[in-house]
Amino acid sequence: METIALEIDGKRVTVASGSTILAAAEKAGTDIPVLCYFEHTSSKGLCRLCVVEVEGATTMQPACVALAQNDSIIQTRSENIDRIRRTILEMLASTVDLSESPDLLEMLLDYDAVPERFQGGKQLLPDLIDDNPVFIRDYAKCVMCWRCVQVCAEDAQYAFAINFGGRGFETSIATFFGKAMPETTCVFCGQCVGVCPSGALKAKTEHLLELGALPEEIFSETRMRRKSKRRRT
């Protein structure tokens, strides 16, 4: 195996050629914050929280997708990097509900983020969608990491039940014409729920338990709904 050596925050590390900066940093014991990055989905470099400074590069590099280069010298924290991370976190926290994103809440503290500076700005807080017996969709908590769309498509299930709605700031996760989940090609595999990092997708049972429902109520509700479930043929 071909290896390369580089320096991350002053620490020398040797990794396999073709490793990302993120992987190299992990090996060096350096923690780079990530949001959209997930080991089991293809990296899209969306959130940019993982940007780092590579000596000699003209722009900051997203560590999750940028490959580590031999002999490069990388800084994972600096005033400039922190400024970017803080601003992204502030914009995100002022847009959606991060109450069920403990990692992000911790990051907000770590970077001294003050989301209140964007108070009064547009927020994305749609109503919770409860349209099937398996899971609920609470997009007010969606951080747009794309993982659900990815696992629903080529990254895992090939069900293609969800994609995007809108554009720009208003980009959302959507089904065909906003249809209820049972009327889509969803196979209720639950993978999207499993990869959601922010509590936007949640098992129906968990949701009902949080609401204080009794086990027999939960059972009856999910069973009733299952009987009436319509599936595309």
């Binding site: 949001l35 899209k44 470099g45 969306l46 959130c47 940019r48 929280l49 970017i84 601003t87 992204i88 914009m91 995100l92 002022s94 847009t95 964007f118 700005g121 547009k122 747009m144 995007f164 809108g166 554009r167 720009g168 700031f169 208003e170 980009t171």
Partner: peptide, 17 residues
């Protein structure tokens, strides 16, 4: 803000803010 595609976080939210 109208033309941002919405892919990366800095532009999606930055153009709006």
């Amino acid at each position: 803000s109208h033309e941002s595609c919405g892919k990366c976080f800095p532009c999606r939210m930055g153009t709006q803010r």
